[in-house]
Amino acid sequence: MLRRGGTIGILGGGQLGRMMAMSAVQLGYRCIGYAPEGDNVAAGVCEDFFTNRWDDTAALAAFAAKCDVVTWEFENVPVTTAQAIPADRIFPHPRALETAQDRLNEKRFAEGLGGKPAAYAKVDAASDLVGAVDRLGAPGILKTRRDGYDGKGQWRIGSGRDADALRLPDDPLIYEGFVEFDAEFSVILVRGQDGEIRFWDSPRNMHEDGILAASLLPAGKAVEGQVQEARRLAGEVADALKYVGVLTCEFFATHEGPIFNEMAPRVHNSGHWTIEGAATSQFENHIRAVAGLPLGDTATTAAGVEMRNILGEEIEGAHAFLADADTHLHDYGKREVRDGRKMGHFTRLTRA
């Protein structure tokens, strides 16, 4: 168990690290961040912050020497960076990054545990894409196997003609067949160092242009009838990885049951509602887990919860949301405002 006043290192400087650090400070810990140069909004909450390249071995060693434990706030931290931290001081283990950073490996991993992903095919050349469309049909989605998020690195393929005309990027790719679904939802869990797992209620997620727009509770019958099966898979993923911290698995609710979409080995946008809407937030429970503390209650504490992202210039008028006494605003403090960028979120509670 990490002593009071101990230091938690966070790899990454975005809003997830910022909210994680806020929870750590509340529990009596110090935080130090590490990320390359950029709009590192977590730095305002951390006691110290290293602004260095991911491959700067000397800086990483100096950072690690100052930390009692280390975690990360987004899944694109290079595996080699995470592996530079002593294995007994980084949570989750870097094997979670290795699994999640490649969409092909991720889907095969889920299948090995009994999960059912969308039909998929590996694409390394234009001929592979044409063959994948022939086998799996269209429409479908072509994705980079690595690094894509919030709709980036994705191309909708409406027909074989689209596949023929597309100039492929020079990256490993995967083609996914179209899934007819009733709803999208996420399973968010926390696993402690002793193997205990607790789940939050699963929200229904609404996306616009590939970006999460809202997470809603109650999630509705289409989701609620499939949560238990999805939780089984998510729990097996966490156990197989010997995971410590918050883990998110995203699913489609379909007439065939839950279809696995992807996993995020970190706190997640669709779990932001837990700050005001649950007994213990995802951020606090992540810190509890990596520090070796008992896990907190994950029960939902409101009759209804609505979390919405604030994108781009919407942040300029965000204080207007506070006219509703049951609405809570989170401004991430980002300097650069651009279309589609997550600048903050608000959570609106419905009282019982």
Rank of each mutant, 00 (worst) to 15 (best):
S127D: 14
V246W: 07
F63S: 03
T347M: 06
T81I: 09
Y149T: 13
V123H: 10
H328A: 14
F178W: 12
L216C: 06
H286A: 00
P86I: 07
E262G: 03
G333P: 10
H286D: 02
Q154C: 07
I211H: 08
D182K: 13
R18S: 15
N309S: 09
L173N: 10
H268M: 12
P36N: 02
K107I: 07
A303V: 01
T254M: 09
T254G: 04
R204A: 04
R146A: 03
Q154L: 05
N269C: 07
P86A: 13
A100I: 05
L212T: 11
L349R: 06
V123W: 06
N309P: 06
Q101E: 02
Q228V: 11
D162K: 04
A21N: 14
F321R: 12
E224D: 15
E313G: 00
D324A: 06
K342A: 10
A119R: 08
D124I: 02
P36Y: 06
D102M: 04
I275V: 15
L168W: 00
R231L: 12
V77G: 03
I287E: 00
K122V: 10
A61C: 04
S215A: 14
I32P: 07
E276M: 10
R18Q: 15
I141K: 01
A318C: 14
I310M: 09
P258C: 05
M343K: 12
E208S: 08
R191Q: 15
E184G: 09
L136D: 07
T300V: 13
I174M: 05
G33E: 11
T144I: 01
P92H: 07
E314Q: 15
G12Q: 14
T81Y: 02
F321G: 00
V290T: 06
A138F: 05
T7M: 01
E336L: 10
G33M: 15
T81A: 14
A118V: 02
R4P: 04
H328L: 01
I32A: 03
V246G: 00
F283N: 06
A234Y: 00
T71G: 09
L168P: 02
D88C: 01
A264R: 11
A320N: 14
E184C: 10
E47G: 15
E316H: 15
A96I: 05
R146L: 09
A132R: 08
F74M: 06
D55C: 08
I188P: 01
L173E: 03
I315E: 09
Y175Q: 11
A320D: 13
T274A: 04
